[in-house]
Design a protein around this nucleic acid. Structure first.
Lengths: 197, 197
DNA sequence: ACTAACATGTAAAGCGTTACATGATTTA
DNA sequence: TAAATCATGTAACGCTTTACATGTTAGT
């Protein structure tokens, strides 16, 4: 984020991340940002200085160095293209549909659809705000992508609701599923079991 | 996964997860699966027994208990509907487009589009395999969703390629972006900086 | 004979969050 | 005057992976 050449404090970075980056990437906690900035400074990727706002209160702002610019540039150009990390709790619960009453499952997916529409609208507003300024050309593209992504997510949820209704109507729905075929044929991925440690 | 009522070993679970769950959820490592199974057993959510295949080699298979079924059922019905976790490295690199040559950025997105189509086809095959058996009704829905999701991801990448080309043609592309507006207006999310610790 | 797959685990390390702690400034 | 926001940080904990370690069985 510092590669945009603005001096930023840890607090700034968190606000910025929450505001726009979260639409296609997660937002780290304050504590991680503060410790990561220190680590980056230790490695010479950023420098910091204290800015006094009035006489007494100061804040620490960070700026990228040539080394840091080189490193992130190199990363962005040469890192392998990996699959996006997705952990879709709602889909996991559909996959485990045999555990839940069909009406409740419907509710869960409907809520996800509504949330997706909200996120789409958010992205649209942000993309609009980015429009025009040349400096924000790429962020604008990313935000437009996010707008379409969340629209797709919303539509996919809508389609799932139809599929769920159809399954319920067909009567093949609720039974606590018996044995899976002996081949290792049908497998999804483990969530974090709510740790009642 | 044990709620499907089949006895499974840690190894089985990993294979199953890699095979099908990874299309909408991540796949934990072997070591996490083995330690998590022990933790679940400690809490009474699963039981295990050793199955002898020949005289000498055995493997440990796990089965869900009533307590475990109750716990996962309860989780699935009552857990809050949260935003899916997404960490989209490719989009992050578009957002940071000022760091990369337009041609290279194009390559990266094109590779992602191709990968998405591969994953879509995978999901289609799996969804087909699940078709018919009532026990797999919900997994089939999830896999169909995954097929559509990855098709959307592919189309979104295609659209991004067009946007990128347009930006390049307009000449507003490469400059190492100057200052962002003073408002905390445009912010995406921090990746893991390649730790050259 | 070799390689891949089966099968299970430990140890170390890194990633990331929550809870806690502190204190100033701004807004209602 | 109370609450929200600005601002920074530490400590504890949990999640997750990688590397290591070991040995068997099945296929080429």
């Amino acid at each position: 984020m510092l590669s945009f050449e603005q001096e930023l404090s840890g607090y700034d970075i968190k606000k910025w991340a929450d505001w726009s980056l979260k639409l296609f990437y997660w937002s780290p906690s304050f504590s991680q940002i503060y410790s990561e900035l220190k680590r980056l400074e230790k490695h010479g990727y950023v420098t910091s200085r204290t800015v006094m706002q009035d006489d007494v209160r100061g804040k620490r702002v960070y700026a990228i160095t040539d080394t840091g610019r080189e490193a992130v540039r190199n990363w962005s150009r040469t890192a392998p293209v990996e699959a996006p990390v997705l952990k879709h709790g709602v889909l996991l619960r559909v996959w485990l549909g045999h555990l839940t009453e069909p009406e409740r499952l419907h509710e869960i997916v409907a809520e996800h659809r509504d949330n997706s529409e909200r996120r789409r609208a958010e992205a649209a507003v942000d993309a609009d705000a980015a429009h025009g300024e040349t400096a924000w050309a790429y962020p604008e593209l990313a935000l437009k992508w996010a707008e379409r992504y969340h629209a797709a997510e919303r539509d996919l949820a809508e389609q799932m609701l139809r599929d769920l209704d159809e399954l319920a109507a067909s009567g093949r729905a609720t039974e606590p599923v018996p044995l899976p075929p002996d081949s290792p044929s049908l497998a999804p991925r483990l969530p974090g079991v709510p740790s009642t440690e």
